[in-house]
Amino acid sequence: MDRDERMDFIIVTGMSGAGKTQACRYMEDIGYFVIDNLPPVFIPKFAELCRHSDGHVNKVVLVVDTRSREFFDTFIHVLENMDRDNQPYVMLFMDASDAAIIRRYKETRRRHPMAPSSRIPEGVAKERERLAPIRNKATYIIDTSDLKKIELKEKILNIFASKPGDKLSTNVMSFGFKFGMPLDADLVFDVRFLPNPFYVESMRHKSGAVPEVAQYIEQYPVTKEFEKHLDNMIDFLMPQYEKEGKTQLVIAVGCTGGMHRSVFIAKHIYDRLKDKGYLVNLEHRDLMKNDVWEHVREEC
C-alpha cells in the first residue's frame, strides 16, 4: 500500500500473546482509530465506509484474530477478495516463539483462545497452523520474542509514523507560578529572573506577545544568553525524546503571573520548534487570569 494515500487502512493480526494489544496502543498514540476483534466478514464494508467518510476517518486499525472463532475461517477469503478488487490495506502480523507465548500465558494465568480446556502448547500449535496462510500475506512481521516494550514502540513508530510530526507532538505552555504549576509538564523553565515589564507602566497591561514588550525583554544581555542556552538544550533534547519513542511532550514556561516573560519565552520556543518542522502547539494558560487583563492587547 502506498503510504502517501489518503487513508491508512491497517489490519493487525497474529499469534495470541505476541503483543497485538500493546502494538495497537502505540498506534492509537500516533492517531490511529483502533477497532478490536472485528469479524473478518465485515472488513470490506468497513473499509468502504471509511473511504466515504470525507477524510474524517483516514487512519484505521482493525484487529482480527482467532478470538472471532468460527468467523475467523473467512479471513483468508476476505483478504483474497480484497486483493482481487484492488482494495488497499497493510497487514501487520505479530509473532513470537512458542516458548515466549507459553511463558507469557503462564505469567498472566490466562486461557489460550485455541485451548480453553487443554494445555497451552496445544493451543499455540493449533493457532500457528491456522494462521500460517495469513502470515504469508503479511506486509510487516514483528517478532516480539525478545523485544522490550520500548523496542516494540520504536518499531511501530518507524513503520507507521510516516511524518516527523506524528512521532512527537509538543505543547508549549506559558503559566504563572501564582496560579500553580501545570501537572502534566515534562519540562519546566522558571524565567522569573528575566527583566519584568510589569514594572514599566506602559507595558503593564500588555502581554509578552506584543512586540513592544517582547523587545523590552529581549534587549537585555541576560535574556540573549538564556535564549542561547535554551535553544541548545531544546535542540539536544528533541531528537532524544523522538529516539526514546515519546509521542507527547509538554514544555512549560513560568513567570510570576504568566503574562509577560513566560509568554515571550514560550513563543520563542514555539517559533523555533515550528521552524524546525515539529508538530507544536502554543498555549498561554494563565493570560486571562490576570487582574490587569482588561487592557491587554494580544498580538500573537
Rank of each mutant, 00 (worst) to 15 (best):
E225G: 01
D291H: 07
H205E: 15
L273Y: 07
K106L: 13
L187T: 08
C255W: 03
D271W: 00
M82S: 03
K59A: 14
F189H: 03
T144S: 14
G14D: 11
L282N: 08
V210K: 15
M114D: 02
I150S: 11
E48D: 15
K228F: 07
L249Y: 08
L273N: 09
V78E: 05
Y199F: 15
S207N: 06
F71Q: 06
I30W: 09
R25H: 13
S118I: 13
F236C: 10
H229W: 00
K246R: 13
K228T: 10
E299A: 15
K243S: 05
R128D: 00
I76F: 00
F71N: 15
D65G: 00
P195N: 14
I142P: 09
G165M: 03
P164T: 03
P239S: 12
G19A: 10
A252F: 01
E225R: 10
E299H: 10
A266C: 05
V41K: 15
L282K: 08
I76V: 09
A214N: 01
S207H: 12
E218A: 13
L287W: 02
R261M: 09
E107I: 02
L237T: 03
R3H: 08
P211K: 10
S202I: 09
D54T: 06
L49I: 15
F33E: 02
E80N: 12
Q248M: 05
T139I: 11
V41M: 12
L49V: 11
F72Y: 13
S207A: 14
H260F: 11
A115Q: 07
P121K: 01
S162V: 10
